[in-house]
């Protein structure tokens, strides 16, 4: 066992445990945990089975096999951020629709004689 191997096994175990704990405590939705768990499992598998890491690395022409771990981790980070960008775009659309609906509804209420007071100065204070 190399130090790096031990380090990456522990690291992926800790990541896995943190993600599971976050789901358990409701801090992370299952939907957004899949890529995190997958990255932990894949890095763990590559760390535990050194032959697997070596054979994939040699097939990809990577001279120093442990750098495959970094490559895999990097690809997962890319996927996760891309996923976030998609999620943010969807949220943006939904958020916009709600804000527009709110503007239309406030006006409808006003026309029905119900005046919702506008923003108070304290509203924006953090």
């Amino acid at each position: 066992m190399y130090y790096l191997q031990i380090f990456s096994i522990i690291g992926s175990l800790v990541l896995f445990a943190i993600v599971i704990d976050f789901i358990r405590r409701g801090l992370l939705k299952e939907k957004y945990s899949v890529l995190w768990l997958a990255s932990a499992v894949v890095i763990m598998a590559l760390s535990v089975k050194k032959e697997l890491l070596d054979s994939i690395a040699s097939r990809l022409g990577i001279a120093y096999p442990p750098s495959l771990l970094f490559l895999v981790a990097f690809i997962f980070v890319l996927l996760i951020t891309l996923h976030f960008s998609v999620v943010i775009s969807l949220l943006h659309e939904k958020n916009k629709a709600i804000a527009q609906e709110l503007a239309l509804m406030k006006n409808a209420l006003k026309e029905a004689g119900i005046d919702v007071p506008g923003k108070a100065r304290g509203d924006d204070r953090k």
Binding site: K96, A99, Q100, L102, A103, L104, K106, N107, G118, K119
Partner: peptide
């Protein structure tokens, strides 16, 4: 008639609010 956005959303969203009003 005034439709007020709660926060600044940009010209696209602003025009669209107007079109939503027109449609409805």
């Amino acid at each position: 008639t005034v439709l007020s956005h709660l926060y600044n959303m940009g010209i696209g969203a602003t025009m669209q609010t107007g079109y939503k009003y027109a449609g409805r």
